[in-house]
Design a protein around this nucleic acid. Structure first.
Lengths: 93, 93
DNA sequence: GTATTATTTAGTTAAATACTTAAATATAAG
DNA sequence: CTTATATTTAAGTATTTAACTAAATAATAC
């Protein structure tokens, strides 16, 4: 999860994740959604992959990207811990 | 929530949040936990405050910082949406 | 008021980041 | 095997970021 927050700090990468939430897409399909060169998007995909936020699979000459939900679940646990612990403490429990 | 991910991308700021999870602390008490100058910590606190992750309150000559859980709750909703939606879709529902 | 302590602001610098273009790799098609 | 398409890697550059020191602000104590 160390790299996840870094990866999530960029708006382009969060947009990519939003696209992948609805359906799996190839690198080219993803880059079609942005006013940015393919190499730039490729870099972003590399960072998302390294943060385990996406998974990639070769499909012939294409590379299809999909969301990996495990880190999202880690983030939920992390944030829940803050919200619960803090709110309990503030009520003096 | 736009600024929250940016704020969370820095390890020092996440450590500050970890400290505040256990108890409210003044700016000076926070900086005591780091090998870093007070101005540097002050900048980090400013960023956390601007991202609504912490709240500050003047206590005499001190400034006491505490966690604000609202953005953590937003993050939980955000991540839940990814995890749920994606997992349902992958099961063909 | 003057000095002391707590914190923030301003200005500077080094390192990291997000782009770009050009070249490399890999698969597919003729 | 040559050409075309999809994607990534490499190299360079401009912007952003995270740190520092020095100075400013604010509250307390004498």
């Amino acid at each position: 999860m160390q790299n996840a927050f870094k990866a999530l700090s960029d708006p382009t990468r969060r947009q990519i994740l939003d696209l992948l939430k609805d359906k799996d897409l190839t690198a080219g399909e993803i880059s079609d959604h942005f006013n940015m060169t393919k190499p730039s998007i490729s870099q972003h995909l590399k960072i998302l992959k390294h943060a385990d936020l996406v998974h990639d699979q070769k499909k012939g000459q294409f590379v299809e990207y999909s969301l990996n939900t495990t880190v999202f679940q880690d983030i939920i646990s992390w944030a829940l811990d803050f919200a619960e612990k803090t709110n309990l403490r503030k009520r003096g429990l």
